[in-house]
Design a protein around this nucleic acid. Structure first.
Lengths: 337, 337
DNA sequence: CTGAAAGCGCTTACAG
DNA sequence: CTGAAAGCGCTTACAG
């Protein structure tokens, strides 16, 4: 059932049928009525979206590249808030939302390239992600959340380094044995405990910048970053992180900068288990300031992933982004000294 | 940058370039190398996906219609497992995944119809959802999760009525004052406490069937369903349900069939708050048997939303569905007598 | 191994 | 208010 067929049955030309759907005002009322009646009778569902997209050179959809299995993305509260913001803009603008989960395999780039979309959002990934080269060579708008920066793409991110420096100043005040509970360094996501790892070895820019910011503070405070224990989680998950937190506390750590609220909660959980007083025996701080952070009294960097999702969606749809990047503030509560 | 341009620069015809991408074996090795080199030099990113889709009459993508704001879908553990299953199949098959959140407004049907997809999955919705008429008239495969059944679409669902009957038999054993904690009856999602509501007024088939199954048991047990208190939540959320659970318990309810693990947990939470012994003072049962159900000792109907998501995806991609519908079993633990 | 031709289903600027 | 023409970028069966 095509437009041409409807036209023939109506005794009009295909373009008149097209006008009935696209510019009904330009069609005589009687013609319009007749065409739509015949279309309904024939079960013509309206113009084919693919043909329309080709002709208009516009798909009305954006692609969101997630460097994870979808299950992980859905488990991360911040990824969910981000996607909710993206979806909101898509709805407002009548745009489609194509989810493209990738896991670092070869077919990933094909799946990314073969999506019929007008622009891309890339969820925070590693420096060398081949997807970045693909999307930036497509001559379509690209927003990269978090990073890395690539030519032809706009990064939407808070200043992770500056926020980390400020957070470390709060969390490490009066600490004898500070530590970091970190996001993964690389896609391998091997959980481990490191001692003073080199930030330049970290492949995720968000994670690297936060580590660099912590180093900035350490140097100012006269603490050698090479001595800083850094526990690296496999995923941003409160329960998963328990074992690593225990490893830190077993080493006598009394102050932790955690890279998310979720990870900071894991530290608070451990403090509770061990009867440690927060912040006196153990200071903790995180990022995000999600809904639970207030209840838990957590010092944390407030940022709106929802708004960042909205911004990324606008960029991917070809809008000019807000002139200034997303903001952050340190929300100081009782988990730090 | 089009295929025609690459062809001209190479001194070959466009179809030779096309063959380089689609059937490279049919092209002379030298030609192939030259074409790809020129393409790389010119920054040609490969065949345009939209044009390819039009020509092939195949999009390589499915649409998933969610009758909710995305934020709600992401908050529901079962919806997340379902989507994870869908995404898994999409990845295996190299298919795209278009998310189409709808909220009952007029533009919804346009957004659904204008998605360039080969098939649709509709997440459990109300009988009268206009989206159903649209997708079933498109001559594309349609899977409806949960229901309702519509001509031209396949429903993927457990037998909710039978499972409810069996669950009620467990949960209401030795009960003097049984009750139901129910999903919303309709899109309005007005939380309320009803007394013996007529199941035929429920617009969500899943919810209606479960209520009908509970009625089946009540009649067998000689209990008049017209006396059955039914608390209707606004959303499937553990914390949100607390007030309604309190309303039930204030009325002396001593056995609750809840329509999900989440809602059943809300009942367990209330029992804890009030110092009620489960199952002696208060019996509870739910649906889903998610990861937390075991830890909480919950009697619950086990089903795999993940597998149902996979099945729906296969249907939407045009595969024959498994000959028999998804299975369920009652997992009996200590929350019932 | 390569090319001329047809066509996927539609939209748009233009002419009448 | 309506139509003839061109073309969006590609793929495929066919001929050579």
């Amino acid at each position: 059932m095509t437009m041409a067929l409807v036209a023939r049955r109506c005794g009009v030309s295909p373009m008149t049928v097209s006008y009935c759907y696209n510019q009904p005002d330009r069609v005589a009322p009687g013609t319009l009525r007749r065409v739509l009646a015949v279309a309904a009778e024939l079960g013509y569902p309206g113009p084919d979206p693919t043909a329309r997209s080709l002709r208009r050179r516009h798909n009305g959809a954006i692609g969101v590249v997630l460097g994870e299995h979808l299950a992980y993305a859905f488990e991360d509260p911040q990824a969910r808030r981000f996607l909710t913001g993206v979806a909101e803009v898509c709805r407002e603008r009548g745009a489609g939302l194509n989810l493209i989960p990738t896991t670092g395999e070869d077919q990933d780039v094909d799946r990314v390239r073969s999506a019929s979309v007008d622009g891309y959002i890339v969820w925070t990934t590693v420096d060398s992600d081949p997807v970045l080269g693909v999307v930036s060579g497509l001559d379509k708008p690209v927003a990269v959340h978090g990073g890395p920066a690539v030519p032809g793409a706009r990064v939407v991110s808070i200043d992770n380094r500056a926020s980390a420096r400020e957070l470390a100043a709060r969390a490490f005040a009066d600490a004898r044995r500070p530590a970091v509970l970190s996001f993964p360094f690389d896609r391998d996501r091997r959980p481990r405990l490191e001692s003073g790892p080199d930030p330049d070895l970290v492949r995720f820019p968000v994670t690297r910048d936060r580590l660099l910011g912590v180093h900035d503070h350490c140097r100012e405070a006269g603490f050698d970053p090479a001595l800083l224990p850094v526990a690296v989680v496999a995923r941003n998950d409160r329960a998963d992180a328990a074992a690593l937190v225990d490893a830190l506390l077993d080493r006598g750590v009394d102050a932790v900068v955690a890279m998310s609220d979720q990870l900071a909660f894991a530290v608070l959980d451990a403090a509770r288990r061990r009867g440690l007083r927060v912040p006196h025996d153990l200071a903790v701080a995180g990022w995000d300031d999600g809904p639970d952070a207030r209840r838990e009294g957590l010092t944390t960097i407030a940022q709106s992933l929802h708004d960042q999702g909205r911004t990324c969606a606008l960029i991917a749809l070809g809008d000019r982004p807000p002139s200034r990047g997303p903001g952050w503030t340190a929300t100081v509560r009782d988990s730090t000294r």
